[in-house]
Each structure stands twice: as structure tokens, then as C-alpha cells.
């Protein structure tokens, strides 16, 4: 047998081989942990957007759309953000198992750790209004974003399916009929004398609302129920939601 150890030591000396410096490994380790952290944070952004989109939709109006509840859920799920969430959780998992002790954890444990952090942080971001701001930025700055997500706007701008949304322009007293500018800037005559105003709304110009009713002709809509733009009009803690 060759004397391998002595040969190796000679080669180390001859080729002037040196141990890689400690900072190299520390940097590598910090990089992996940072990538894990960034992935989890991006995952939490995705989760907050999922929450925002789900919460802004009205889930009680599926019968107006003539669809089953399951079909409505299938159409409305924020697939784009779900894909991002899965992607970031995957990247977080990949980085975690490459940390020094990552291999000691089971696949399912790492997945749950990443998911729980993303869900918790995402919920905090949602409750702070972060996801609403982020959603607005995406709508304004990212081309075709509005085509990729099923939003409250898409849900309510379906006059042919008896749903409409927009801002009150003028009010005709005493019946409270009004002129509405919809979300596509088209003007509508709204018959609202038989409508139920949910959430203790006071009809005033500039008020953004959602309407359930019946399409009469190209620019006339008879409202049966009017809701504030945000929420379904339930009265909670002194606020109209």
C-alpha cells in the first residue's frame, strides 16, 4: 500500500495548498440563512396578497353569477399568488436543508416551519394594510397584472350578470335615484327607489358602491341592494363594512 498520508502532505506543501479562510464559510452560511429569510419574507408577501384578494371578494353573491359555490371558489382563487407562495416556500426549504444542521429536520417539519412563519408574518402585513398598498402598486405598475388575478373589480363589473360597481355622481331626490360612473368610466342611470342600502350608507356624491339588481338597458340599471365598496355592508364596531 502506498503511504497516502505522506504523499498528501507532500502535495499540500508542494502545491502550497491552504485551508480556505473561516470568513469564506461564515459568508456562505450567512448567505444561505439570508436566502432562507428572504424566501420566507417573500412568501409572507404572497400570503398577505392571498388574504387581501380573498377578503376583498364577496363570497355571498355566487348565486347572482349563476354558479355553484365551488365553481366560484375555483374561479376566484388567487392562483398567481398561490404559485408565488409555493415557489418561495420551496426556495426556503432548499436553503434550509443546505444550512449546517438543516438535514436533521424532516421534509414536512421544514415545510411547516417555513409556512407557519410566512402565514403569521403575512397575516400581520395584511392587517397593517401592506397588502392593499402592494396590490395597488401591482395594479398600477405591472402590465397585465389585472388580467392575472380575479379581483373585486372583476367580480362586480358584470352588469349582464346583474352586478355593478362605481361612484355616485349625482343624486335625484326624492327617490334617491342617481347617476353612477362605473369602474370603466361609463355613466349609468340607477333606479334605486326600491333598493336596500346596506351598512347604513347615506347616498352622497363621490361614494364608491357595489350594486346588485337588474340590467334594464345599455345605460340603465335597477338596484335592489347597494353595498359600500369595502366589505358586504355589515355593521361592525361602529364601522360600515
Amino acid at each position: 500500500m502506498k503511504n497516502i498520508s505522506e504523499q498528501v502532505l507532500k502535495r499540500i506543501k508542494k502545491d502550497n495548498i491552504r485551508p480556505k479562510p473561516r470568513w469564506y464559510f461564515l459568508t456562505k452560511n450567512y448567505f444561505i440563512w439570508s436566502m432562507f429569510g428572504i424566501s420566507v419574507i417573500l412568501g409572507s408577501f404572497a400570503f398577505s396578497m392571498i388574504l387581501f384578494i380573498i377578503k376583498q371578494l364577496d363570497w355571498d353573491i355566487y348565486h347572482y353569477l349563476g354558479d355553484s359555490f365551488l365553481k366560484t371558489v375555483f374561479i376566484s382563487l388567487p392562483y398567481l399568488w398561490l404559485i408565488f407562495l409555493i415557489l418561495f416556500i420551496g426556495v426556503a426549504y432548499y436553503n434550509f436543508i443546505h444550512t449546517k444542521r438543516g438535514y436533521r429536520f424532516k421534509f414536512i417539519s421544514i415545510l411547516l416551519i417555513s409556512l407557519v412563519i410566512s402565514v403569521t408574518l403575512g397575516s400581520v402585513l395584511y392587517s397593517n394594510g401592506f397588502s392593499e398598498n402592494l396590490g395597488n402598486i401591482f395594479f398600477e405598475k405591472i402590465p397585465y397584472y389585472n388580467r392575472l388575478v380575479y379581483t373585486c373589480e372583476k367580480q362586480w363589473m358584470q352588469p349582464e350578470r346583474d352586478l355593478l360597481a362605481g361612484t355616485i355622481m349625482e343624486i335625484e331626490l326624492p327617490e334617491n335615484n342617481f347617476i353612477l360612473k362605473d369602474l370603466n368610466n361609463n355613466k349609468w342611470k340607477i333606479r334605486a327607489n326600491k333598493a336596500i342600502w346596506k351598512g347604513k350608507l347615506t347616498p352622497t356624491p363621490g361614494l364608491k358602491i357595489k350594486l346588485i339588481g337588474k340590467l334594464m338597458d345599455d345605460n340603465t340599471f335597477e338596484a335592489t341592494e347597494i353595498r359600500p365598496w369595502q366589505g358586504q355592508g355589515q355593521f361592525i364596531k361602529g364601522k360600515n363594512w
Binding site: 502506498k2 497516502i4 498528501v8 495548498i17 480556505k20 473561516r22 464559510f25
Partner: peptide, 22 residues
């Protein structure tokens, strides 16, 4: 075979030395 295994062992020892700080 033994010769190839010895070559691998040399590579192992070099790698270990280079990564001692890890």
C-alpha cells in the same frame, strides 16, 4: 479497485484540509 480508491482517498484528504475551517 484499490488504486482508484487510493486516488479518491488522496482527494478526500486534500478536500478535508482545504475545508478544515468549516
Amino acid at each position: 479497485n484499490k488504486e482508484d480508491a487510493e486516488d479518491i482517498l488522496q482527494e478526500v484528504f486534500i478536500k478535508v484540509y482545504q475545508n478544515l475551517n468549516d
